[in-house]
Design a protein around this nucleic acid. Structure first.
Length: 558
RNA sequence: GGGCCUGUAGCUCAGUAGGAUAGAGCGACGGCCUCCUAAGCCGUAGGUCGCCGGUUCGAGUCCGGCCAGGCCCGCCA
């Protein structure tokens, strides 16, 4: 099937060349023909403002230029009519032939319909969640998980080779704090709390007690008699293992799977941090001052230079992160996407500065900042803090609200919008949840085929069906909506905006529900019924592909 | 003090290479099942796009200045 957008651009380009010749005018240098989808039905399927852009060059009124261009447009079997409108827009209305070919293409391509080749097979990595293994995932992590996961799906669908990665911060001071917290609970449970006091900033959640209890069940009281500094590593490692397993399980149940779990500790073990510092020193991008080693990030637009190695010889978190990103690029990724909480936004300029020092373009690193999720319970905001042990876990939310609804909720907003998640609403008024609206379309689609099959009606061969019989407003709107899917994929990939796919899913469901209420598929005259069956099959294909990108179930019955 | 994000209908939000009459959902009001699922459809009401100025044929969109909310500004992670 032809690419209709380029087809229309070609038609326009040829017409402009021909018009220029005819009127003895010059083809405007650097003219880029842009076509877009107008907002209103009566403004056609595609529109261009090219005549308005040319007004300056040709010193003519936009409407006059548009008229000239239109008169030089060649006929096309895919274009039914062309109109001059408003201040100088040229509107294109697509033909029935285009619609027929589109529907046949959708059915022929199936799972592949909507895929693009924008990535040209280049390698992209999406790193997301990366929550410290100091406690279970909470609702905020859920948003990052959904966004990162679907972003990866979209890029893959758009032609990138994609890997998903989780960065485990298992090397810092907070690990020690976690170990001490568990250790303190262990001593406390055995009635010896004075021997290992609970650290001031320790992790207070119930899960710390549970881990301590687990250790007692396995190892008994054998650590009581040993010096606490000696046994700290045991508590720490055990806690990290347990918590990380819990995180993996939670994500798996949230339908998020990672290709690589990358341990920060291994960066240290492999000497990559030292290597990175040497690399920067050699290039004069790092220097020593006041006993510490600093990175010259101001050279790349950061507001101040940053410490890499503290005066006590310990690398900073930032140093780990630079080494980590160096490793990412060393692994051959063309595009690296980090999904971070918005509270890390101040960190973006220095990371971008860092990757430039590594010889990359700042655009090779894209950071998706995820704004906070505010949890609303009984009309009040719930404060969340891992250390204080006050949070609603992802697990609890999955159990209460369901994975489909949660994924939908997390994805329906732009990343940089705050998200109010009203638990009571999500639980009690779940029928108002838009995810059901979309899923309901899936159930209805399925029931049409079920009913058809019970009446002994089979899906006709697409090429034998007269699709031009579909000419009502609802049918045409639905077909146009199907045709938009590849464009939406491209846009979502280009703008790194998963929410666009959610909006598209809703739009598709809406077009289908309108169609469904206005017309019957079965029981009409056979040729019309066949045409509608084919249409409905195409809708099903696209809906499955869209929900597949979002990893939301497409139920057959509701 | 500096920086990032946000401010669009009663509520929650779409709408960025500047374009045509600013859109959805929820809520409100009024209609629609003899028929493939009414978790649906159709219609009505609801707007100084935070405020002021600028750029131009044209600004919710770009620029400047204010106002309000959130977040950040460490040899913490």
């Amino acid at each position: 099937m032809i690419d209709i957008e380029s087809h229309i651009k070609d038609l326009l380009n040829d017409a402009i060349i021909s018009a220029a010749k005819d009127k003895n005018l010059v083809y405007p240098e650097g003219l880029e023909i842009i076509i877009e989808r107008p907002r209103r039905e009566n403004q056609g399927d595609y529109a261009t403002n090219v005549a308005m852009l040319m007004a300056r060059h040709w010193e003519m009124k936009p409407r006059d230029i548009a008229q000239v261009i239109i008169s030089h447009l060649k006929e096309s079997e895919y274009v039914e009519k062309v109109e001059l409108a408003g201040p100088g827009f040229i509107n294109f209305f697509l033909s029935g032939l285009w619609m027929s070919e589109l529907i046949r293409e959708i059915i022929a391509k199936g799972d592949d319909y909507g895929k693009r080749d924008l990535g040209e097979g280049k390698r992209a990595q999406v790193e997301f969640v990366s929550a410290n293994p100091t406690g279970p995932l909470h609702i905020g992590h859920g948003r990052g998980a959904a966004v990162g996961d679907v972003m990866a799906n979209i890029l893959s669908f758009a032609g990138w080779y994609v890997e998903r990665e989780y960065y485990i911060n298992d090397a810092g001071l907070q690990m020690k704090l976690l170990g001490r917290s568990v250790q303190a609970r262990y001593f406390e449970l055995l009635g010896r709390s004075e021997a290992a006091p609970f650290p001031e900033d320790g992790y207070k959640g119930d899960y710390i007690h549970e881990i301590a209890q687990e250790i007692i069940d396995r190892e008994g009281d054998k650590f009581l008699g040993l010096p606490i500094e000696e046994t700290l590593d045991y508590f720490k490692d055990y806690a990290v293992k347990v918590i990380l397993n819990g995180i993996k399980k939670d994500l798996e149940d949230f339908r998020v799977l990672f290709d690589i779990w990358f341990s920060e500790k291994t960066l240290h073990e492999r000497g990559l941090i030292r290597e990175m510092v040497d690399f920067l020193m050699k290039r004069g991008l790092a220097y020593e001052k006041e006993g510490a080693i600093w990175y010259r990030s101001t050279q790349f637009g950061d507001e101040k230079d940053r410490v890499l190695i503290r005066s006590n010889g310990e690398p900073t978190y930032f140093a780990s992160d630079v080494a980590y990103h160096k490793d990412k690029f060393d692994r051959g990724f063309d595009l690296v996407i980090d999904v971070w909480g918005a509270d890390h936004h101040g960190y973006v300029p220095r990371m971008k500065a860092a990757i430039q020092a590594l010889g990359r373009s700042p655009d090779d690193l894209q950071v998706l900042l995820i704004q906070f999720v505010s949890l609303i319970k009984q009309g009040r905001m719930v404060s969340m803090s891992t250390r204080a042990g006050e949070f609603v876990t992802l697990r609890e939310m999955m159990d209460e609200v369901g994975v489909d609804a949660m994924r939908y909720f997390f994805l329906m907003r732009k990343c940089d919008s705050h998200l109010d998640f009203d638990i009571d609403l999500a639980k009690s008024a779940s029928t108002d949840n838009p995810v059901y609206y979309v899923q309901y379309a899936s159930a209805r689609l399925h029931s049409i085929f079920k009913e058809a099959s019970s009446r002994g009606i089979e899906l006709p061969a697409p090429e034998k069906v007269d699709i031009s019989l579909l000419k009502t407003e609802e049918e045409k709107a639905l077909i146009k909506c199907l045709g938009k899917f590849p464009e939406e994929v491209a846009k979502a990939a280009k703008e790194l905006s998963p929410h666009l796919i959610v909006f598209y899913a809703y739009e598709l469901a809406k077009a289908f529900h309108s169609f469904y209420n206005a017309h019957r598929v079965l029981g009409e005259e056979k040729s019309l019924s066949d045409a509608r069956l084919i249409l409905v099959r195409a809708v099903q294909v696209v809906l499955l592909n869209v929900l597949g990108l979002l990893k939301i179930n497409a139920p057959e019955v509701m």
